[in-house]
Each structure stands twice: as C-alpha cells, then as structure tokens.
Design a protein around this nucleic acid. Structure first.
Lengths: 216, 216
DNA sequence: GTCTATAACATGATAGAC
DNA sequence: GTCTATCATGTTATAGAC
C-alpha cells in the first residue's frame, strides 16, 4: 500500500532529480547529488527508482501526460488540419522546452534493445501510443480511410520524433529554428491532404509492411 | 610521424576490441578486457583511442568503407532502380550482419549533442555523406531533377537508418524480418518512381525547409 | 514496508612516473 | 609511448532503525 508519506518521498526525489538534470545535465548529475539534494540516503533513491534511467522514464511519462492535455486544449480551438497539426507539434516543444539537457538521456537509450527506454520496449509503448493518438485526433475531421489515417498518424509521429531530435541539437535563441521547422513542415504537408486518398494504396502497403515485420 | 610499430599496436587494439564487442557485446566488454586481450596496458588503449566510443567511431568508418565497396559492386550488376536499391540496402545489412551487439553502442550516442558519434556531429559527416552518395548513385539513371534526386537520396538514407534500427532489435533467425523489411520497402517505393516528377515541388519544398534550419 | 548510513564493487577515464 | 596507480560514479550490499 502506498502511504502518503511514501509517495511524498518518491515525489521529492523525482522533483529534485529533474531539477538537477535540467540545471546541470543528466550525465553531470550523480545519484549521490540527487539523494543529497533531496535530503535522503542513496539507498532511498534506489528504493524508489531502480536506476538512473528509471528517473528518465518517469519524466517521459509525466511529460507525455502534460503534452496530451495541452495539445487537446489547443486543438479544440483550431478550425483546420493545418491549425491542429501546428497545435500538436508546437505544444510538444512547449512541453519539453526547458529540458534539452534531459532529453538527450532519453534518446541515448532509445536504440538500445537492452534498455527499458528503447523505442520498441514494452514499457514505453503506452506513452508512444498516447502520442500517436494525438496525431490521429488531428486527422480525424478529414474522414480518411481508416488504414490511411493510421499510416499517416504513424508517419506524423515519426516526424515529431525527428523534430525532437533536431530540437535537442538546436542552439538557436528561443529555439526559433525548431519552431520554423515545425511551421514549414506543416505548410509543406497540410496542402497535400486533398491528394491523400490517391495515396490510400500506399498507406495500406506501408502498414502491410510494418505489420508483416511486427512494427504495427 | 606514425611508425610501423605504433600503427601495428593501434590496429591490434582495434581488432581485439571489435572481436570482443562482437562476441560479448559492447557494454559487457571492458577496456580492461580489451587491453588485456591485446597484450597492452589500459593506458596504452586510451593513448590510441581516447574513449570507448572512439573504438565505435573507428568501426563506423571502417564498416562504411566496406559497404561502399560492396554496394558499388552489386549495383553495377543490377539493371533497374529496383535492383540497385535492393543492392544498396541488402549489402548494408550484409556489412553489419555480425555486429548487432556493437551497433546499439553507435545508436546510443546518435542523439547526444555532446557525443562525437552524434548524427549531427562533424566527425560523422564524411561517413554519412558517403552513405547518402550511394543512394544518389542508385537513383542516377532515373535522370530526375537535381533537387528531387537530393531530396530522395536523403529520404532513402533516413529509411536505411530506420532499417538499421529495426535490424538491431531483430531477433528473427537469419534476420529474415529485416530482409523482408528491405524487400517490401523497395517493392513499395520503386513503382512510385514514375510519379516522382509530380512530386518535384515537394522535393524542393522539403529541401528548402532542411536548408533553412541548416540540415542540408 | 520505508528508510539511514556506510562500505564495497566494477568500470570508464586520467595523471604522472618511466 | 607505455605503464601503474588512482579517481569518479552507477550500482549493490550490509546492517540495521522505525
């Protein structure tokens, strides 16, 4: 049973860790630093978070929940596909704006089959599906064939991963390069939607490949 | 000046490291293991390779050189776009087939701005450009508009990165899932080439975005 | 079950002797 | 150029207190 005291301790440790990761970066923050700043023993930190990566996983879940809320809010105010895509992508950047130094830790393990943070790992699946669902919602009003909608939602999610990767490396003031990448991407893609039904066989085909190899 | 003795030592260390990485994986091979098996002190290994990642970088350069040779060889025997794309992608997998355990180390640092192995780092640029050039060669006979050819070569390179990422996680016997992913991807894309000129504005547009943010 | 305090261990990396 | 000694840090272990 999770007591109030216990979850308060857990929260304290997570908050402290994220604060230090943001300030000094993931690598340069040690578990000893986190424990000390949170006012607990090293053992307590490991009692709640079995590894340093587990703290990143907790961040990943929390930040996705924030993004979902914020994106839905902004999407409901938009009146076009263009506006909805912009809403999802810009709120994504809003959500992670302060966290450049932290995010590289997430991507570091994304390709590692052994890591729980792997892009294919079961642990990350719920969060990933929640993110893909947002793009599906942005597309919903277009009334596309189901297969095509799924394929496009997946493609847009892939694009968003690429944009986040770019954001991590973006040193421009106010991340204006990333903001521009979002705007130009939407400008390029949204006007193509009328052509989308023509691409329906492609959508089916792509999904077919992904299903065949177990990716969708 | 690089003496014969020195480069022999360097080579011995690299060979030994790759052999151990292949056998036991990157994480589970320590620098102490490498030094011991190569018959040198830990300090000597660090003298030639300033970090464990530097050994991976050396692998990356070497394996790309192998891929370039092999892909050109197979491409020259192919008579269609379909065949040339298959040649480039399958030889890529041929080249890294034994190295699943090693490759995750490469991807691990790909998203980290601080790493020399970053996908945006200057150190990796030559290797990346060499790889993109292969896709350009596969497309050359199609006589596409220059901008479109560049955009497609970049897109195909991105696809190949995705395929390598999938390969790292592919536990199927003989990596048949990856081989199937290659074949189905080519089957899906090659027949669309006749439509490509229609997409020329898209190609220009995409390249425009990438240039604007400094990615191409 | 929730912690503290401390030590120990493995390993990437470095300093300084030779 | 090469080696030995040493450090820093993720993680585990020990031994308990409440």
């Amino acid at each position: 049973m999770t007591t109030k005291k216990s979850s308060a301790t857990r929260e304290k440790i997570l908050e402290t860790a994220l604060r230090l990761f943001r300030k000094r970066g993931f690598e340069r923050t040690t578990m000893r630093d986190v424990a000390k700043a949170a006012g607990v023993a090293v053992g307590a930190a490991y009692y709640y978070f079995p590894s340093k990566d587990a703290l990143v996983m907790a961040y990943y879940e929390r930040t996705q929940a924030n993004h979902t809320t914020l994106a839905r809010e902004k999407m409901s105010a938009a009146t076009s596909l263009d506006g909805r895509l912009r809403a999802v992508l810009h709120t994504k950047i809003d959500t992670i704006e302060r966290d450049r130094k932290l995010l590289s830790a997430l991507f570091r393990s994304a390709g590692d089959p052994a890591s729980e943070l792997s892009i294919f790992a079961g642990k990350t699946r719920r969060v990933r599906d929640e993110s893909i669902a947002l793009f599906r919602e942005a597309l919903a009003a277009e009334k596309l064939p189901a297969e095509l909608e799924s394929a496009l939602a997946l493609a847009l999610w892939s694009l968003s991963m690429g944009i986040v990767l770019f954001f991590i490396h973006d040193e421009s003031p106010n991340h204006e390069k990333t903001r521009r990448l979002v705007d130009r991407s939407v400008e390029t893609l949204a006007p193509m939607m009328p052509m989308a039904p023509m691409l329906a066989p492609l959508g089916t085909s792509v999904l077919g490949v992904l299903r065949e190899v177990g990716l969708a």
